[in-house]
């Protein structure tokens, strides 16, 4: 059974290192990486100290302790996915507003240019 915890520890270490590398190379923002780092560390701690894990499982009535790790992982992924969807909808709204503003400014510029052309034509005459 302890092999399970070893797998999880190795995955946790790789995951945390991978996220840190991405942040270091500016390929992932600090703010957004916090959740993943926290998730990775939680996974690592629970795998390195199985005692906490086993006690917690028993407390929650989970017979097979590694199931708790899967449960926590699923909850975490669902939470992050929900947050991302929420952010996507906020970003879509901002993009729409920008598109509207861009269209209005373009119209204003073309109206201004038409007015200028008319003025120059009048001066020419």
């Amino acid at each position: 059974m302890y092999w399970n915890y070893l797998y999880f520890s190795v995955i946790g270490i790789f995951f945390v290192v991978y996220v840190f590398k991405k942040v270091k190379r500016n390929e992932f923002s600090e703010g957004r990486s916090i959740f993943w780092i926290a998730g990775g560390f939680t996974m690592l701690c629970l795998s390195l100290f199985p005692v906490i894990f086993i006690k917690l499982s028993l407390l929650l009535g989970i017979v097979y302790p590694p199931s708790l790790l899967f449960l926590l992982s699923i909850v975490f992924v669902v939470f992050v996915s929900f947050r991302q969807d929420q952010e996507i909808s906020q970003l879509s709204e901002r993009v729409n507003e920008l598109a509207q503003r861009n269209a209005l400014l373009e119209q204003a510029i073309s109206a201004f240019r038409a007015e200028e052309r008319l003025k120059q034509d009048n001066i020419g005459e």
């Binding site: 598109a99 509207q100 269209a103």
Partner: peptide, 25 residues
């Protein structure tokens, strides 16, 4: 005719709101 061209399709409501914004401004 005065035309406001959206850079991509925003749907009926997005186009309508652009018109409102133009009118208000």
């Amino acid at each position: 005719v005065i035309t406001i061209t959206l850079p991509f399709n925003l749907g009926y409501s997005g186009a309508l709101q652009t018109g409102y914004k133009y009118a208000f401004a």
